[in-house]
């Protein structure tokens, strides 16, 4: 069964990571605590990494990954620690 349709597994992995990344983006927008929003953004970028990998673009993964997992949470955490953590009404 699996041996007959091997590309179904690849499409299944891509579909699951797409759906989970949509949920992560929704939670990152709706979250009041900004540190948690940074972590949701990190989850989303990790799932996008799987998508880029299965779209056969490892060079884009090599560029996207340090920016999305390394640089943006670091810069945003510095910014949050300079201002305030919880978003007001």
């Amino acid at each position: 069964m699996i041996y007959m349709y091997p590309e179904t597994i690849v499409y299944l992995i891509m579909a699951v990571s797409s759906i989970l990344s949509v949920v992560a983006v929704y939670l990152a927008i709706m979250e009041r605590d900004l540190v948690r929003a940074v972590l949701y953004s990190a989850i989303q970028s990790g799932l996008y990494t799987i998508l880029y990998y299965f779209l056969m673009a490892p060079d884009i993964v090599l560029v996207y990954l340090p920016v999305a997992v390394g640089l943006i949470p670091g810069v945003l955490l510095i910014l949050i620690s300079k201002t305030e953590r919880v978003e007001k009404e």
Partner: peptide, 23 residues
């Protein structure tokens, strides 16, 4: 050539750990 991706992935997540621990 697709294997190249995994070494930066293992290294940058450690950076995320250290950021959150220090924060």
């Amino acid at each position: 050539i697709l294997t190249v991706v995994v070494i930066p992935l293992a290294l940058w997540v450690y950076a995320l750990d250290i950021y959150m621990a220090k924060y």
